[in-house]
C-alpha cells in the first residue's frame, strides 16, 4: 500500500497581521543587543537571523497558518530563539528560522534530508531538540535554557555539520 500527503502552496493570507507592539519589542531586542557585539560582521549575521525570526513571526502569528490548525507563533518563543542566537558561538553557522505547527520557533541546521538538527523554542526555558545524523543515528531530548547554551546542543550542532 502506498500513501500520499498532498503538499500545498498558500495563495492567500500568506502574510498575517501582526501586532505593532510585538514587532517593536522584537526590533528593540535587536537594537539593544547591537552594542554588545565586538565584531560587526558577526553581529550583522546574527541581526539578519533575528530579523528572520521577526519575518516568521509576522507570517505565522495567526492561527491555522498552515491550513492544518497550526497555533500562532508566540512572541515568547521568538524572544527565546533570539536570545539563543545571541549566545551561539560565532564559529557555528547560523541556522534557518522556521515556525513549528505548535507555535514554537525552530532553528534548523540542514545538511541534507538525512543530516539535520532542529531546536524548538516555546519561550518556557526548555528546548526540545531532534536530530538525524546519517542513516542510523538519531538524537532527541529536552534541555533547560536560561543563561547558556547546553553543551549537548552545541555537540549535536557540530555533529550534524560534520556531515558537510
Amino acid at each position: 500500500m502506498s500513501t500520499v500527503a498532498f503538499t500545498q502552496h498558500s495563495s492567500i493570507g500568506l502574510f498575517g497581521h501582526s501586532g505593532n507592539s510585538s514587532m517593536d519589542e522584537m526590533r528593540g531586542i535587536i537594537d539593544k543587543e547591537s552594542d554588545r557585539f565586538a565584531l560587526p560582521v558577526t553581529f550583522q549575521k546574527t541581526k539578519d537571523s533575528i530579523n528572520s525570526i521577526i519575518d516568521v513571526f509576522r507570517k505565522r502569528c495567526e492561527p491555522n497558518w498552515d491550513g492544518y490548525d497550526a497555533e500562532p507563533v508566540s512572541i515568547e518563543a521568538c524572544k527565546e530563539a533570539a536570545k539563543f542566537l545571541q549566545k551561539l558561538p560565532s564559529t557555528i553557522p547560523l541556522p534557518e528560522i522556521i515556525a513549528e505547527p505548535d507555535g514554537d520557533i525552530g532553528l534548523e541546521w540542514h545538511v541534507n534530508n538525512r543530516n539535520l538538527f532542529v531546536i524548538g523554542f516555546a519561550g518556557k526555558e526548555i528546548l526540545s531538540y531532534s536530530g538525524l545524523f546519517g542513516k542510523g543515528s538519531k538524537a532527541s531530548g529536552t534541555e533547560y535554557f536560561t543563561d547558556s547554551i547546553p553543551h549537548v546542543i552545541i555537540e549535536n550542532i557540530r555533529r550534524v555539520l560534520a556531515h558537510h
Binding site: 500500500m1 502506498s2 500513501t3 500520499v4 500527503a5 498532498f6 503538499t7 500545498q8 502552496h9 492567500i12
Partner: peptide, 18 residues
C-alpha cells in the same frame, strides 16, 4: 478532496510507502 477544504494552491505531493 484537498483543495476545496484547504483553500490553497496545490504545488505537489509527497509519496510514502505504508
Amino acid at each position: 478532496k484537498v483543495i476545496p477544504i484547504r483553500n490553497k494552491r496545490l504545488v505537489g505531493r509527497a509519496d510514502l510507502l505504508a
